[in-house]
Amino acid sequence: MSLPTSVKLVEVGARDGLQNEAQPVSNTDKIRLIDDLSNAGVGYIEVGSFVSPTWVPQMAGSRDVFAGIQRRAGTTYAALTPNLKGFELALHAGADEVAVFAAASEGFSQRNINCSISESIKRFEPVMSAAAEAGLRVRGYVSCVLGCPYDGEIPASQVATVARELHAMGCYEISLGDTIGTGTPGATRNLFETVAQHIPRNQLAGHFHDTYGQALANIYAGLLEGIQAFDSSVAGLGGCPYAKGATGNVATEDVLYMLNGLGIHTGIDLDALIQAGNRISTLLNRPSGSRVANARSNQLDQ
């Protein structure tokens, strides 16, 4: 299969990234980050999530962040909404799209959201109904698709079952997440081949963590399978909660550099993206998690 000519990058740094950062970030700084990403040409940005601040304190100000950003025409500003209350808050905040999440692992589902996979999916039914009534599209996430910290290796057929249920409920795109970053390119290709027997490839996305240094290789494997949407996080925001000191989300700058080298169009300005990542990294008082950004900085310093 030939490589796609264009790819959608779903920027998750402001949500999935910052919610896993230990240092609190003000709403003003979140707004600046999102505006920087918009100005760099990022076409899809997860702005925040509407979950209980008790569980995810970093996302407590998502409504104010939505109110403060400068929206760029052509960019989708999305929110994570695990239940109907969250959806209603996201709708009132002006989210363009919402997302729901399930796990491919029973162990992870029980420990992460205190219910079974089937129970978690059933909770989404009122969200899907309300979204359809409001005319908002819903994106689905499936976590632990290539391994689980509790259940170990996850069969691709098990992932396909969960993804198929979300797709049948009305999710227009299903993002398959290697939450602990243990996946390898061969397993990634097998995963997409298996799930694509039930869901069209143009409705699948990849979400790869770089804990074991395999994220870019896995994204390339996804490209070879005809996948045209991938999640990433500017500056590699968001540590991995399962491997101390390890990286979590793959850096958007690194993914973009690879895609540029392959001649794949995204519409994103790499230099502007690096500046956005460096700005938020400075705010967090640490170097960027992007190898490309650090390499560029080292070249400028010489």
Rank of each mutant, 00 (worst) to 15 (best):
A163C: 11
Q299L: 10
G61R: 03
L166G: 11
T75N: 12
P126T: 10
K122M: 13
D151Y: 14
G186D: 07
N114R: 15
S157I: 12
L300W: 00
I219P: 01
A168R: 15
R286V: 03
A95G: 08
A215Y: 05
A104C: 08
G248L: 01
A22N: 03
I180Y: 08
S6A: 14
N27R: 02
N83T: 13
G222D: 05
G267L: 10
S297T: 03
M59V: 06
S62W: 13
G206F: 07
R286H: 04
L18T: 04
V12R: 06
A217W: 02
S288T: 12
D16K: 10
F124T: 09
D151T: 09
P82E: 12
E97S: 14
G263V: 07
L259K: 03
G94F: 11
I180R: 02
R189V: 01
V7M: 12
T188D: 02
G74K: 09
Q275S: 06
T282W: 00
N39K: 13
A163N: 09
V195H: 06
Q214R: 03
E88Y: 07
A293M: 01
Y150S: 02
N112M: 10
S116K: 13
G86M: 13
Y220N: 02
E173G: 07
Q302G: 01
V56A: 13
E193Y: 00
P185C: 01
N202I: 05
A78P: 04
A168F: 03
V195Y: 08
I219R: 02
F66Y: 04
G181Y: 01
G152S: 11
G226D: 07
Q58W: 09
R279C: 03
L37T: 09
A293F: 00
I113R: 15
V159P: 10
G183I: 00
G183V: 01
M1T: 14
L283D: 02
M169W: 05
F208K: 02
S6E: 15
C148I: 10
Q110W: 12
Q19P: 07
S232N: 05
N112L: 08
R201L: 03
V159R: 12
A293K: 01
A104Y: 14
A293W: 00
T266K: 10
T282D: 12
L283P: 01
A293H: 02
I174L: 11
G263F: 04
D271H: 11
E106R: 13
V98C: 15
D271P: 00
Y141E: 07
H207A: 04
S109L: 09
I227P: 08
C148K: 10
G94A: 11
P149S: 10
M1R: 15
G13S: 08
T179I: 06
F230C: 06
E193G: 09
V255N: 06
M258F: 07
I113S: 14
N83L: 13
A95Q: 07
R123P: 05
G183H: 01
H209N: 06
N294H: 02
E88L: 15
E125F: 12
L136D: 12
A40F: 06
L237P: 04
H207I: 04
P82H: 13
G140R: 10
A132R: 15
L216Q: 02
A196M: 11
Q110I: 12
V234C: 13
T75F: 14
F208G: 00
G13M: 03
S297E: 00
A132W: 05
